[in-house]
Design a protein around this nucleic acid. Structure first.
Lengths: 192, 192, 192, 192
DNA sequence: GATGAATGAGGCTTCATTCAT
DNA sequence: AATGAATGAAGCCTCATTCAT
């Protein structure tokens, strides 16, 4: 009995990321996706119920790597600034090695036809709470800070910076190290 | 001669805002829009060349009000914090009187199918520059602050807060005045 | 009581000819027609039941002038060649004074959405019969010649020549007089 | 794997010919075409980019057969009259076996919405030139004869005769052999 | 008489999904 | 298991025609 050809699935996932970055959720058609991944149109329906579930899976995988990294950082670090530095470094590195990754996630987060997986909402909530506690315990965040404020700043600002930067909206770009230092400073300041 | 029924076009604009809030640019179909606005399918093509122009017009109108308000504030205020307070107050008030307005604009800004009108990009750039200069002149913003940082914080954080809040992502909500004070503080802190 | 404004009708007819020459029957929209003729969209429905009847009327007028001319020629001339010369001269002159006229009629004759008026079919039949009899009586046409042959040659060849010529399909064009002489010769030869 | 049902595309082509004969290019709608061919509305877009390309393909196929036949005749025959006889015989035979074929091509040639394929224009030009040379070399055509005259007579008259005949415009119809002889005579005479 | 605002049927086309092989 | 042929609902848009004023 032939096992599932994992390379096919991987090709599909890879091309899904690329195609959605190029054309958005709705603009990415199954036909073109299948053509690029060199599988048949019908193939992916053997693994996913529909387009939405395919994209959710790719999205889930993508974000899980990021979230797992943050959870790991939260365990290792004893100050909030360390976690923020990790997040910013992670994102900068990712934007070099997989330039599409952040754009992919970003475009889906705001895509209406795309249903955000609950597992990721929960993960974001949980990591924000842990980070908030850490920051308050160390006195890095002021007492008033809430979970939502952590999300608004530490998770939003770095991601959006990279988005803007990749799209060329940032005219006076400095060295990566300087950029990262500035971002960390802004995030930490915001919650001080 | 039959007079133009201006309420028709107003109904269309109103339903456009609502429908796009519900389903995004692509999910909002002409047929459903016409049905909800109680006009014929072809009606809007007497006023707009196509769907894109209709939505752009509604979007432009919406954002222009906001941007004009900011430009006005920039003229009146002599400190950056005053402008930030104005922005936050404006958005809070708008979210009461027209609950869909911010959601509408927000969802379009990130929509792949929607072509962002250039006039708004330019306005955002200009107001960011003016605000940056003001903040630096008064010493409220640190010397390192750039245009992109102003946009990342002062224009992004308040809008996203209201988005999150409206969607119910904010669990421990306080009084509006407290919320506004906190937001202003976070924004100003970030650029300090 | 205000009389019908004939200048309006005339403007409509004129623009109908021009627009159909430019875009064909289907491509000529009532809205553009009305705009060009500087009348309202609904105006022409006060005089014609629908688009088809308007175009039929313009067509009828156009062809009637031509047909009346031929009937007149048939009365005046005592040899077929004279009539053929008249036809060819008429068409050449018309193509100078009203370049669109022949193109207009030609494009409608073959347009599927256009219903050819019966009055013109009958006129064509009648004049062909008279010309056939004349040509046979004078011995210019051979005995075998039939009504359809007259139509195939004398009415088709000159009109198509001008069409081709106007469209630039004719590379080695000579002087008008030479062209006319050749056409007459070909037509007469065909039925000899 | 489901094999391609070739009869489907053949049915489409056949119904395209029939529908265009009935209603012209614009009058032939995709929906009715699909219904008659018993395929789904979207089916033909798997084989053609759009309506125009479908019709052009059917048209091209149709005319190519005719043109190839003429080119072949031009090679085999050593007198122009032989080629004209071949053309007339071909058209008469075709009008028996595929009554719609000539009507189909004829109606498209004059249709405004239909874009005539260039390959056919070029073929017509070329064959006319060859035939013209042949006729002049044998002395069958007079020295004045030009390419356009060949097209006006030899390609126009037989086609239009069959059109008229099929539409019932020809009242005193004779035997096919007699008809063909007459047509050939007229064509040859015209250019003598 | 005249207008032009408004309609809505119908056109072409796309594409996620199904299913026979 | 895998294919890709085929479907058909749904999308956007046009325009001849109507009718309230």
């Amino acid at each position: 009995m032939k096992p599932i050809d994992n390379s096919k699935i991987e090709r599909i996932k890879k091309e899904t990321r690329k195609l959605i970055v190029e054309k958005g959720y709705h603009g990415a058609s199954i036909a073109e996706l299948a053509r690029r991944a060199q599988v048949s149109d019908g193939y992916l329906y053997r693994h996913y119920k529909n387009k939405s579930e395919l994209v959710q899976d790719v999205f889930e995988t993508q974000l899980k790597t990021f979230h797992d990294f943050i959870f790991d950082s939260l365990k290792r670090r004893d100050k909030a600034i360390g976690v923020v530095e990790d997040i910013v470094h992670f994102l900068f590195k990712l934007s070099k090695t997989e330039p599409d990754a952040i754009h992919f996630a970003h475009s889906l987060v705001y895509d209406f036809e795309f249903e955000y997986p609950q597992s990721r909402s929960l993960a974001i909530d949980e990591m924000s709470k842990i980070l908030l506690k850490l920051g308050k315990d160390t006195g890095e965040f002021c007492d008033e800070t809430r979970v939502i404020d952590v999300q608004l700043t530490i998770l939003t600002i770095p991601v959006k910076f990279i988005e803007y930067s990749n799209r060329g909206y940032c005219s006076d770009r400095m060295s990566d190290d300087e950029e990262m230092r500035l971002l960390v400073k802004m995030c930490m300041n915001a919650l001080r």
